[in-house]
Design a protein around this nucleic acid. Sequence first.
DNA 1: GCTCCGATTATCT
DNA 2: GATAATCGGAGCG
Length: 192
Amino acid sequence: MLLEGPVLEVAPLLLGATLRHGEVACRLTEVEAYDGPDDPGSHAYRGRTPRNAVMFGPAGHLYVYFTYGMHFCCNVVCGPEGRARAVLLRAGEIVDGADRARARRPAARVDRDLARGPARLCQALGIDREQNGHDLSAPPLTLELGTPAVSVRTGPRVGLREAADRPWRFWLPDDPSVSTYRPATVRPRRTS
DNA sequence: GCTCCGATTATCT
DNA sequence: GATAATCGGAGCG
C-alpha cells in the first residue's frame, strides 16, 4: 500500500478510501494530518511513550487512542519507522453493513450521523483498544484506497489548542458526512 | 502521588 | 449554545 509518505500528501489520498471491519465498511470523507516531532498538536510531539508507540512504527498500521474517558479515535500511521506521522480518520459514510453500524450507534438518529465524527466512526466500525497497532492489510480490518478525489478542501484542525492555525484538515466538499467544525473548548480556570 | 485536561459526544435549553 | 459524563496520559514535585 502507498501509505508511507509526508502527511500532507497521504491525507488527501485517504479521502474516498474504504475502511472495512468485517461486515461494516466506511468511505472516508474527512481526515486530519499529524506530523510527529514537528507538530505541537500531535500526541508524538513530546517523544515516544507507551501510548503513542504505534505512531512510531511502520506505515499502514492503525493507531487507536482513548480520550475524554469514553471515546476511541483512530489514525492511519504513514511515516517510516521512528517518524510518528499519522492521519486521524474524522468522518465517513457507512457504505456496507449499516444494520450492524446502527446497532452499535443507537444514538444516531439518521444514517448520516453513524460515522460523522472520529469517535462515532470508531464506534460504528467496532474499533477500540483491541485494534491498536493492527496491520491494515490484514482482514478483517483493512484499508483500501480509492481513486484520488477530484476535489479536496482544507482548513484548520478540530478541537486543538496547539497549532490550530495549520490547515491540516482535509475533506470532500459538500459531503453530508463531514463533521461540523468546532474550535477547542476553553474550560474555566479552576479557583481553589 | 496528585492535578489538569484532552485530536469528543449526547442531550438539554 | 452549554454542559455533563468519564478516565488515563503526562507533567510536576
